[in-house]
Deep mutational scan, measured.
Amino acid sequence: LQAFIKTLTGKTFTVEMEPSDTIENLKAKIQDKEGIPPDQQRLIFAGKQLEDGRTLSDYNIQKESTLHLVL
């Protein structure tokens, strides 16, 4: 599935991932794409901060969901 990552500066980019991917995997993909170390990334979806060990499906993240990236 493709999801949108929106930063506080208003920049939006897309990442490809599977519902079974962990938040940790997602942070690694963001690092590959944007060069931001995972330990500096905080991802917010539906008002909740996402925990590394959980999966996208745990948070009911669907295709074309928008996640907010806070540094």
Rank of each mutant, 00 (worst) to 15 (best):
F13Y: 05
L67G: 02
G47Q: 03
E64W: 12
T7P: 05
L26T: 01
S57Y: 09
I5S: 01
L50M: 10
L69P: 01
K48V: 15
I30V: 04
K48F: 09
Q40N: 09
L67I: 15
G35T: 02
T55Y: 07
Q49N: 11
K27E: 00
E24G: 14
L26E: 00
P38A: 15
K63G: 15
L56F: 07
K11V: 08
L56G: 01
K33R: 12
G10D: 04
Q49K: 08
D52Q: 05
H68G: 04
I61N: 04
D32Q: 14
K48E: 13
V15I: 14
L43Y: 04
L8E: 15
V70H: 09
E64R: 07
M17Q: 02
G47I: 02
G53P: 06
K11M: 08
S65R: 07
V70F: 14
D52G: 07
N60K: 08
I5T: 01
S20N: 13
I30F: 02
R42Q: 11
L67Q: 02
E51V: 06
A28Q: 13
Q31V: 04
P38Q: 13
Y59P: 02
G35S: 04
E64S: 13
T66N: 05
P38T: 14
K48Q: 14
V15W: 02
I30S: 00
E51T: 05
L8P: 14
N25K: 15
P38K: 15
Y59Q: 03
P38D: 03
E24Y: 13
G35A: 04
L71Q: 07
T12I: 13
A28E: 09
Y59K: 02
S20D: 13
S65L: 09
T12Q: 08
G10M: 03
K63R: 12
R54L: 12
R42F: 12
P37S: 08
E51W: 04
Y59G: 02
L1K: 06
Q41V: 07
L56W: 05
V70P: 00
K48I: 15
P37Y: 04
D32F: 10
A46L: 12
K6R: 11
E51R: 06
T7M: 15
E16Q: 10
A28P: 00
K63L: 08
F45W: 08
E16P: 10
I23C: 01
G47V: 02
I61P: 05
A3S: 03
G47A: 03
E18G: 09
Q40H: 13
F45P: 01
D32L: 13
E18A: 12
E51K: 08
Q41Y: 12
N60I: 09
Q40C: 10
L8T: 14
E34L: 15
F13T: 02
Q2W: 09
E24H: 11
T22C: 03
T66L: 12
T9G: 13
L56N: 01
F4L: 11
I61A: 04
D21L: 05
D58G: 03
F4T: 14
L67R: 01
K27T: 01
K33I: 15
K63W: 12
D58Y: 14
I44K: 05
G10P: 02
T14D: 04
Y59V: 04
V15R: 00
L26K: 00
P38S: 13
D52T: 05
K6N: 07
F45Y: 13
L26Q: 00
Q62T: 15
K27G: 00
E51G: 04
